[in-house]
């Protein structure tokens, strides 16, 4: 394995800046975040980067590596072509703060607008609920989300069309689907999913699913079933009747 590699890292504040090349020693098993930390400790003490767990569990270290949205801590150097400089830049969909750090606060604001978990009355004598594992497998898939926002970063509705005010983005369809499919929840978010979260803007390109480090099937398992619920409730009075008669 090569002893050194070069990283082309975006340096600057609030969108102003440039790529700077750093060459750093590398060892077996290293991930991109290790290289960034090595550079930070020796050549660039003030290099801004977020991280916490170094194991793909917290969703802090999202960035774009050679143009692909990825977690820096889970991107092994041996999966990259090290004969060329490796490009590391911040997520493009969110306002830039500094170096590799972006302002992701919009995501937290979107979540707050979604009706919170609203449990139905308990069904067991001890004041809790009896729920089968098979009935929670799907919402548990959604609850694996580590809020890395890579899916938000890649979605063209946000990235290219900047519809942040009208469209909640894949992460929040996953969140809403988790609530809607939770057998204990009694809330109804279908109207909001259509009107406030703007699910209609999604044209099922599946880019979000491809980048999800938790391998959540965002489009197939969350977005499409939610779109079906929206259609059932809003565009298909007959469908509604059938439901009643069944």
């Amino acid at each position: 394995m090569a002893e050194q590699a070069t990283f082309r890292i975006w340096r600057g504040s609030r969108g102003e800046g440039k790529f700077v090349n750093y060459t750093t020693p590398i060892t077996s098993g290293m991930v991109v975040l290790d290289a960034v930390h090595g550079i930070q400790a020796s050549d660039a003490n003030d290099l801004a980067v977020r991280w916490n767990c170094k194991a793909g569990k917290c969703g802090s270290c999202s960035a774009e590596i050679n143009g692909k949205p990825r977690l820096m801590c889970m991107t092994r150097l041996n999966t990259l072509d090290l004969t060329e400089p490796v490009t590391v830049e911040p997520m493009q969909t969110f306002p830039h703060v500094k170096d590799l750090v972006t302002d992701v606060s919009w995501n937290f604001a979107v979540k707050k607008k979604i009706q919170k978990f609203t449990p139905r009355a308990a069904d067991a004598a001890d004041g809790t609920w009896r729920v089968k594992q098979a009935d929670v497998d799907r919402p548990q898939e959604f609850r694996k989300c580590i809020e890395c926002f890579l899916c938000q970063d890649v979605c063209h509705v946000l990235r290219d069309h900047h519809l942040h005010d009208e469209f909640a983005g894949p992460r929040f369809f996953v969140y809403a689907a988790n609530l809607e499919m939770n057998p204990i929840d009694s809330g109804d978010r279908v109207k909001a999913i259509k009107e406030d979260l703007g699910i209609g803007y999604c044209n099922i390109t599946k880019c979000c699913t491809k980048v999800c480090p938790e391998e959540i099937k965002i489009t197939d398992n969350a977005i499409i079933p939610l779109k079906e619920r929206v259609v059932d409730d809003f565009f298909d009075p007959l469908g509604g009747l059938i439901k009643i008669f069944r």
């Binding site: 504040s13 003030d46 290099l47």
Partner: peptide, 8 residues
């Protein structure tokens, strides 16, 4: 460096 997000 400057005071913004300065990990050092």
């Amino acid at each position: 460096g400057n005071i913004e997000y300065n990990t050092g």
